[in-house]
Design a binder for these strands. Structure first.
Length: 199
DNA sequence: ACTTTGATGGCCT
DNA sequence: GGCCATCAAAGTT
């Protein structure tokens, strides 16, 4: 049994705690999906890499200012990315889901991806595999067809810096990327800054 | 109305 | 490691 079950209180955990606890949980859309194996925390308004940096509030970032536990979906370079809104209501924080270990509906994922490998080892890839688009922005991840539920037990968490934010000044060095140590579905394997046991 | 940007992916060497 | 297609969103005029 996972140490913490997914419920309303789960999504109210502080963002960095929630990010670690999301590892091993199962993400599905209409029953298709897998275990979360890699995430990154974005903690606006002081995080220069966050879309909500400086308190920027636009139609795109609006959902992050709402209650935690909802989906924030955006498009970058023509690819969709899924975040879990986190933090207190009014605090624009979110956790990017970067990779899954496929568990359910693999046949459908293969059809959507047009290949049999690398189905969900990246934030854009997993959205394509599950069929996640901007229409799912704001959906409740506890009760909607796009949901996060109890998954598998995680032994060791690896910590590193976030991917693709070299423009973000000192924020590029924040250790806010978390993945399941040794998992083969991680998007960009790198050596961890450190590892720890999830208590 | 126009220009710049970027939390990517796929393929290359 | 690098290159670049790609396009919605945001910023600028």
């Amino acid at each position: 049994m996972h140490p913490r079950e997914v419920n309303e209180a789960f999504f109210r955990l502080p963002t960095l705690d929630l990010a670690q606890r999301l590892l091993g949980k199962e993400l599905t859309l209409n029953g298709v999906g897998g275990y979360i194996v890699e995430v990154e925390a974005y903690i606006g308004p002081h995080d220069r890499a966050a879309h909500s940096y400086g308190g920027r509030r636009t139609p795109r970032t609006e959902v992050m200012f709402g209650p935690p536990g909802r989906a924030y979906v955006y498009v970058i370079h023509g690819h969709h990315c899924l975040n879990v809104v986190s933090g207190e209501e009014g605090a624009p924080e979110a956790i990017l889901v970067r990779a899954l270990e496929p568990t359910r509906g693999i046949k459908q994922m293969i059809e959507r991806r047009g290949r049999t490998d690398h189905l969900t080892d990246g934030p854009g890839k997993l959205c394509q595999a599950l069929g996640i688009t901007r229409q799912h922005n704001g959906w409740d991840l506890l009760t909607s067809p796009l949901r996060i539920s109890d998954g598998m037990t995680v032994e060791t968490v690896a910590v590193g810096t976030r991917i693709g934010i070299d423009y973000a000044g000192e924020a590029r060095d924040y250790p806010w990327r978390f993945w399941i140590d040794g998992n083969p579905h991680v998007s960009r394997p790198r050596r961890a800054l450190r590892t720890f046991r999830l208590g």
